[in-house]
Design a protein around this nucleic acid. Sequence first.
DNA 1: CGCGGGGCTTAACGCAGGTTAGTGGCACAG
DNA 2: CTGTGCCACTAACCTGCGTTAAGCCCCGCG
Lengths: 253, 253
Amino acid sequence: MTAIAACLIRKLENFAPLTEDEKRALAECIGAVHRFPAREDLVREGEATDGVKLILEGLACRYKVLPDGRRQIIAYLVPGDLCDVRVFLLRRMDHTIAALSPVETAVISHEAIDELMQRYPRLTRALWWSTLVEESVTREWIVNVGQRTAFERLAHLFCEIFARLQSVGLTQDNRCELPLTQIELADTLALSAVHVNRTLMEMRRAHLVSFHNRQLVIHDHAALQSAAGFNANYLHLDGERPIAPVLTERTRA
Amino acid sequence: MTAIAACLIRKLENFAPLTEDEKRALAECIGAVHRFPAREDLVREGEATDGVKLILEGLACRYKVLPDGRRQIIAYLVPGDLCDVRVFLLRRMDHTIAALSPVETAVISHEAIDELMQRYPRLTRALWWSTLVEESVTREWIVNVGQRTAFERLAHLFCEIFARLQSVGLTQDNRCELPLTQIELADTLALSAVHVNRTLMEMRRAHLVSFHNRQLVIHDHAALQSAAGFNANYLHLDGERPIAPVLTERTRA
DNA sequence: CGCGGGGCTTAACGCAGGTTAGTGGCACAG
DNA sequence: CTGTGCCACTAACCTGCGTTAAGCCCCGCG
């Protein structure tokens, strides 16, 4: 049970250390495990859900599709990420979440979260914090798609994904599994698949990065970051110490 | 006092009706009023802040600048919006907020928010909800910049801004104040100022929209929305009814 | 073992939107 | 009333990226 909760706990502790009590409470409310094959939707736009899904394994993405089929991938989800804290507060899901690779999830029921938030205000804050970090990433993506060239965009995305996977222990040295097709990269970066290919070749020739068989290898991390203009601040991965005093465990002073 | 808090209360009540008690508490924690001239930064990247700023009047924006000067506007802030709930939970600000027109703000101190969140868990939820709505808008912007043509983008932006201003009572019939230059529109939509101008002319010729002297007039709302592929769902403006049960006022059941 | 489909790669060509370089209007300072 | 500077607007030209259309490899399936 706790093993399953570990990746979530690890992430939330980037915000503030949790007490044993809080960790146990988190672990206890994690429910049934599900598996989804690659390409399957985990949560669909407009759908009601039974609870909040926690990604245990695999890579997923948020996306939106326009009526004529144009698709934009809006975020990636890695192990430890929660799919839809938002349907808990927002009535409807305004986008879809799909598995990119085979994905394993655990469900946390609405009641369990409700209970959790009532008893453990620090967990509430930690969860809120995690949605704010997501938003911060989303904002950086606007900059990426809006202002950077194809080369910079791709480099930036690689830096970001690598940093995120590293933070959950899914990299080895300078490489990581990255189960994305060039089409999916294109839908992420708002480029055509052809141009993604051109750009990948260019990066390969420059000995920056190679990307083959769903394996990303970063040959020159410094050069890649500087080509991307990458600065990891916006990922908030480094043991955040909030300005505001941390709440005591009981709600009332 | 309450008059100042009104726009914030109105917004939060889109999530769930507040009790008199909660409204009073909100009103009470609103502090000093400040004025900023157009173009001035309200909150700067990396800066520590004294508290959370509430926009009372005027239009502001979030933006990021790349080292070489390319700028991307990431969000607009209208009266009732909070600038930086995030610095309360995230250590540092990862972007800047600037006034687009003369702006009036009120400060809510960190202590006041802290207090508020401890005593009124429903307010905590309402504030969290408001950050989730912001994120939802941010996501739609990725789609806008990534997938839509210049014409669609501009049309979509106009629909969005009009809907948001309408929700805070800042429109008259089919028109509203919109204190933006074409350069600012360009930085928002990731276009050049020249192309924004071309596109504006085209919309004017099509009798969809005119935009002169900081006044936006929408001549054909239906046509504009359909040209934009606009659907207001993602703005969550319509009296959200959360799936999860609303918490009672006391934290403990 | 042959066939079909998905993903990768390349080349040729076209276009949406960028860039540069103007003009004119208007507000405000001196 | 004359600079100065910002903003809107236009035209001419340019380019990064999209589109189309191949061909290739690999893998799973009949």
